[in-house]
Design a protein around this nucleic acid. Structure first.
Length: 298
DNA sequence: ACTGCCGGGAA
DNA sequence: TTCCCGGCAGT
């Protein structure tokens, strides 16, 4: 039974949903996921959850950018027939664990139950969700026989592309209008053949090239589930936007101990790396002279 | 090994 | 001033 469900889900998650527009509708009626994901941007915790089954159909065109967090919060607290939701909002404002900032990958837990692609931020949350909603167990008891493990998988969602949209305005293509035709600009549109899909969360909107990597840790789910290594978007270095705080911390704590002032080395690709030695004439002059790059500054 | 670039030198 | 490179340091 479980294997069947998993097989169906893992092989054709996209095929399932469009046909189930009716069953998706009652899920969509709750309208909580949008508000939650909307408030994601105002918080670092990222404990949002959304329903990935396609209710993003044009009939619910709620403008994703116009959500103001306050209203969203009201909405989400209003439709709280769900324990997970209150828990999510709880975490949203508590943020007990400082998350690693570095490459802002968020680990989420996705329910694999048929027609329920609920995503929660904690394993206990998803376990409880499965226990109560799908397995029909008592939600109060934390007793778990481990069966829930069959019905969810751990996924990683990359967030830094959110700021990548902003970085379009800034340095990658600087004022010198450097010829940067070598950037692999969005080579993977395959997974986005259906534009309407991407509308329903602000996350996916602001992060069009989000790298979404799904994996599972349950070996007994068989090889089928491992296929879900969907990489939406080119793995590009987020140029420039995270470096500021890092270098700042560096200079304040450690004021040039022994050697001279050596900059911590920015993480932006410079001319040499971008164009390569063979196209050295495309480098900026500074790079040609082995000076600090002027085109791709940090 | 590769990369970024400081320090210094030649033209 | 422009151009180049040795060599150091970070990755």
């Amino acid at each position: 039974m479980a294997a069947t469900v998993l097989t169906i889900l893992s092989t054709s998650p996209l095929v399932l949903n469009p046909s189930s527009s009716a069953s998706g509708a009652d899920l969509a009626g709750k309208g909580w996921k949008e508000s939650l994901s909307a408030s994601y941007s105002s918080s670092t915790s990222g404990n949002w959850s959304w329903d990935a089954s396609d209710q993003s159909v044009p009939s619910t065109p709620s403008p994703p950018l116009s959500n103001d967090p306050g209203k969203s919060f009201l909405l989400s607290s209003q439709s709280d027939d769900n324990i997970e939701e209150t828990e999510s909002t709880h975490f949203l404002f508590e943020d007990p664990i400082p998350r690693k900032r570095k490459n802002s990958m968020k680990v989420m837990f996705k329910c694999l139950w048929k027609n329920c692609e609920k995503v929660l931020s904690t394993s206990s949350g998803i376990q409880r969700h499965i226990r109560t909603v799908h397995l029909g167990r008592n939600g109060d008891s934390d007793y778990s026989d481990g069966e829930e493990d069959f019905y969810y998988s751990e996924i990683e969602v990359n967030m830094d592309t959110l700021s990548e949209g902003l970085s379009n305005l800034t340095p990658t293509s600087p004022t010198t209008s450097g010829p940067a035709p070598f950037f692999p600009v969005l080579t993977c549109d395959a997974s986005r053949s259906e534009p309407a899909r991407m509308i329903h969360t602000p996350l996916s909107q602001s992060a069009p090239s989000a790298l979404c990597h799904i994996r599972t840790d349950h070996a007994y789910q068989g090889p089928m589930t491992q296929i879900r290594t969907v990489s939406i978007g080119e793995k590009r270095q987020p140029v420039n936007h995270t470096t500021v705080s890092k270098t700042h911390a560096n200079t304040t704590s450690n004021a040039k101990p022994t050697t001279g002032t050596r900059k911590p080395r920015g993480e932006a690709k410079k001319c040499r790396k971008v164009y390569g030695m063979e196209k050295r004439d495309l480098w900026c002059t500074a790079c040609r002279w082995k000076k600090a790059c002027q085109r791709f500054t940090d």
